[in-house]
């Protein structure tokens, strides 16, 4: 077992974890924060994307033990976050989800796009979304939602 000291959504947590436990499994199974979803579990689909020290990472290919000392924000931790509030509303208005499985990771990736790339156009948004798979929507609603938030934030 390895000692782990980690901050998740503002709560400081100390735990003993098996080295092979992924950050995603720690978040879901040990912290019961099941908003973070697991799809491919090898870094391709993006469903498990969370913020680690403010940057999006794949929680399925990051071991919990390696995340020691870091600050994690999962989809449950964005209540007071302005860009995420804008994105939630825009996803709702633009029908940017159907089954919702990809949505937690999609929103974390979308937040990265609207904060890191304020000048992104549609081509750039689509390129950035290459790392998040959605098999329902065909991306049209997701792209529209992200572009509308980019537009709001430019005003």
């Amino acid at each position: 077992m390895t000692e782990l000291s980690i901050n998740i959504n503002g709560e400081h947590i100390k735990a003993d974890v098996e080295p092979r436990l992924s950050l995603a499994d720690f978040i879901r199974d040990r912290q019961r924060l099941t908003g973070t979803h697991l799809g491919c579990e090898h870094g391709v689909c993006g469903a498990c994307t969370v913020l680690m020290n403010g940057e999006p990472v794949r929680s399925c290919i990051t071991f919990a033990a390696v995340a020691d000392g870091s600050e994690i924000t999962t989809i449950e931790g964005f209540d007071q976050d302005e860009p995420m509030a804008q994105l939630r509303q825009a996803f709702h208005e633009n029908h940017a989800l159907q089954c919702g499985y990809c949505t937690p990771g999609m929103l974390v990736a979308a937040r990265d796009i609207v904060t890191r790339l304020p000048d992104a156009d549609e081509d750039r948004v689509r390129l950035e979304l290459a790392g998040n798979l959605c098999r329902c929507t065909g991306y049209v609603g997701i792209v529209k939602a992200i572009l509308s938030v980019l537009e709001q934030r430019r005003i």
Binding site: P56, V57, R58, I61, D112, G131
Partner: peptide
Amino acid sequence: ISYRSVRNR
């Protein structure tokens, strides 16, 4: 290389 969330780590 891969995607931003992979490039970060």
